[in-house]
Each structure stands twice: as structure tokens, then as C-alpha cells.
Design a protein around this nucleic acid. Structure first.
Lengths: 114, 114
DNA sequence: GGAATAGTTAGGCGTATGGCTAAGCATGTG
DNA sequence: CACATGCTTAGCCATACGCCTAACTATTCC
């Protein structure tokens, strides 16, 4: 089994996305940048609680932010989703390769039955 | 923004995958079934701690298990990864649609400059 | 300058998470 | 039957998480 030393990034991305609030923020930002309070509006949550979610998203690289005046604007950093994509693709590959092997085993069995 | 009521499943799948131990188990199982102790062997962890990870994976539907005699065998349940795949694809779609819109805005700006 | 606005910092609180040991149960095996 | 094997249950502990309120800072606007 391949060693996984540098996958802390994946850890934190997956952890960040495992919270529904944070996932909704990501979904919102996939449509374009937004400020802290715009992002917070749909949620029934105290602002400090909400900004913690934003900090989690930013720490793991899913979003970036920039403060102009007193307004902080967040944007999605889509390359971070690609990492997840890559991992998923790798698993799919393992899985399908395994199914291929099973197929050939079944084929061999059939051959033998003739 | 679309409402997200039934996404507890995604919550728990993402949470499960956010742990490196559990991710490695999934990677292992993507190559074929294995028993509890086979799965545990590579990890320097007390068995009860490890089986908790297996339970987490099973509760969220990422794996299934079956006990024959005193041996429990685990297999990957790949449809659960598809759910994640679907979500990721949706985000990618939002993101690229957004980029398309930006493209057309830029195009319009250019037109006006003529 | 004074008041509203936008975020931030500090600190507290209950629950969930991830690890452990010790003991318990089945199920195979000599 | 006795013993080894494979896993499970019970209970403990420390840390992390997600939420809150209160108070603070920094900007913008009249």
C-alpha cells in the first residue's frame, strides 16, 4: 500500500467539507466572490461562530480572502477541490482495475468449464 | 441557494474520509475485501481503537461487513463514493458556469470598447 | 467628532472524537 | 476439554469542535 505522508492537506479539506455550513459556503462561493456578511446572512448563527467556519475554509486552502477597508471578501480556490478530485479518481481507478481483474478470473473460469 | 436538508449522508462520508487511517482503509478495500485483522495490521494502534474506525466507515455506508465464524470481512461499497463524486461534479459545474459568465462579460466589455 | 457598520478577539461551555486498557465471547484446533 | 484466535464490549481520558456572549478595533458616513 502506498505511503501517505503528505496528505494532511486532504485531511483538512475533507474535514472542512464535512460540515454542512461550510459546504454551503463553498457552494455559494463556487458562483462567485462574496463578503463575510453576505455569506453569513443565510445562516442563523452568531457572527463569530460563522467566521470561524470561514477561517477553517481558509486555513485548508479551500478559499482565500482579502480585506479592503472594513470589508473582507472571500473567493473559492478551486485547485483545492482538485486535490479531492484526484484522490477520488485514484480510488475509482483502483476499484475498476479490481473489477477488471475479477472479470478476467470469471472469464478463465468459463473457459475451464468448456 | 438550494436547500440542503438530506445531506447528512455527505456529512458523515466526508467526516469519515477526513481521517487518514480511515482513508487508507478505503484505499486498501478499493483493491478487494479484507478481514478486520488484515486491515488492522499496518497500523500501530490498539485493536479496539482500530475497529472503531471500521465502524465509522460502516455507519456512513462506505463499507459493508459480514461475519463468518469469528472472522469479519469488509468490502468497499463504491456507490457511497459516488455521492461525493456527484457533489464535487456539481461544484465544478457551478464554478465553470461562473467562469463562462465572466467570459461573456469580458466579451461584452471588449465589444463596447470598439 | 459622533454614530453606524463590518469584522475581530477573548473566553466560556457542552458534546463529539480518537486513543487506551481490561475483560468478555464466540469459534476454531490440538 | 483446554487453549489459542479473532473480534467485541465497557469504561476511562484528553483534546478538538461548534456554538455562544461580551467587548473591542477599524472604517465609513453625516
Amino acid at each position: 500500500m502506498a505511503k501517505h505522508v503528505g496528505d494532511d492537506a486532504l485531511d483538512s479539506v475533507l474535514h472542512a467539507l464535512s460540515d454542512p455550513t461550510r459546504r454551503q459556503v463553498v457552494e455559494r462561493l463556487a458562483q462567485g466572490p462574496a463578503t463575510t456578511s453576505e455569506l453569513a446572512r443565510p445562516f442563523d448563527m452568531a457572527l463569530p461562530s460563522f467566521t470561524q467556519h470561514l477561517h477553517v475554509l481558509e486555513r485548508c486552502g479551500l478559499v482565500t480572502s482579502e480585506k479592503r477597508g472594513r470589508v473582507r471578501t472571500y473567493r473559492l480556490a478551486p485547485q483545492s477541490l482538485e486535490r479531492l478530485d484526484t484522490w477520488l479518481a485514484a480510488q475509482r481507478a483502483r476499484w475498476t482495475r479490481r473489477l477488471d481483474q475479477l472479470d478476467s478470473v470469471l472469464y478463465d473460469l468459463k473457459e475451464q468449464q468448456r
